[in-house]
């Protein structure tokens, strides 16, 4: 469902992502991990069509992001780390606007609004301007809006920042349910406990290079260590840094 082929991105000659090859299957919850500045957000932006790869290609649901961007984006729900929201729209207005962008009929929008706003406990604030929303409410609104067109692929950059424990649990449940329903989840996070809890597979990127791709069990086997994902992650990235 998500495929990258020798995907590279340079910033003025400095490589940010190098020869990234990924294949994420339908129904898979894939966690993309890495230290700050490793190339996670650059990769995500290439998958969302927000950056042009220097080399290689990215495909979502069979559509090349550069050749068929509109068709690819129709199938993506994107939740950025710093989402933009129109401060002077209400949550309901914003949801409707996104629904219209995706050509969702109004009655369907209404049904989904009720469902997702209830799910994320946004209903009491639906008609308030977004400028009055807390950080967590904004994050939940972005989730609701990204899910509204029932995308085949959900790309999520740092989903847990600012969420209260209850909302965090809801988000985790939603992500799992979406994957179980056959949708592909590409999740970038620093919250390793979330990755440990949810991921079917993980990819670890460091200094632009994919240094591990597989399940957590396979990571343990490779490093010949038991322990939490946090321990394994630190060991792996330190090892790579030392090698580099």
């Amino acid at each position: 469902m998500i495929q990258t082929d020798q995907l590279c991105k340079d910033y003025d000659g400095k490589p940010a992502v190098v020869d990234l090859n990924l294949d994420v299957a339908p129904g898979e919850l894939f966690c993309f991990l890495g230290p700050n500045g490793a190339g996670k957000t650059t990769t995500i932006k290439m998958l969302a069509g927000l950056l042009i790869p220097t080399q290689g290609a990215a495909r979502v649901a069979g559509f090349d992001l550069q050749r068929h961007p509109v068709e690819a984006k129709r199938r993506i729900g994107y939740i950025p780390d710093r989402p933009y929201l129109y401060e002077k729209l209400s949550g309901r207005d914003f949801f409707t606007f996104v629904g219209d962008l995706f050509g969702i009929p109004r009655p369907v929008q209404q049904a989904r609004l009720e469902h997702y706003f209830d799910l994320f406990r946004l209903t009491p604030a639906a008609d308030q301007f977004i400028e009055n929303y807390s950080h967590g409410m904004r994050q939940k609104l972005v989730f609701a809006a990204a899910l509204m067109h029932e995308p085949q692929v959900l790309i999520v950059d740092e989903p847990m920042v600012g969420l209260d424990p209850q909302s965090a649990r809801t988000v985790k449940q939603v992500l799992r349910e979406q994957a179980d329903a056959g949708r592909t989840i590409f999740l970038s996070t620093h919250t390793l406990s979330v990755a440990e809890e949810l991921a079917d597979r993980i990819g670890v990127i460091n200094k632009g290079q994919l240094v591990f791709l597989g399940t957590i069990r396979e990571l343990r086997a490779r490093l010949a260590r038991d322990g939490s994902l946090e321990d394994l992650f630190l060991l792996l990235t330190e090892e790579e840094t030392a090698d580099g």
Binding site: A48, L50, V70, K73, R74, Y78, L85, L101
Partner: peptide, 8 residues
């Protein structure tokens, strides 16, 4: 950036 991520 928000609009670019939409199918427009």
């Amino acid at each position: 950036e928000f609009l670019m991520a939409q199918p427009i």
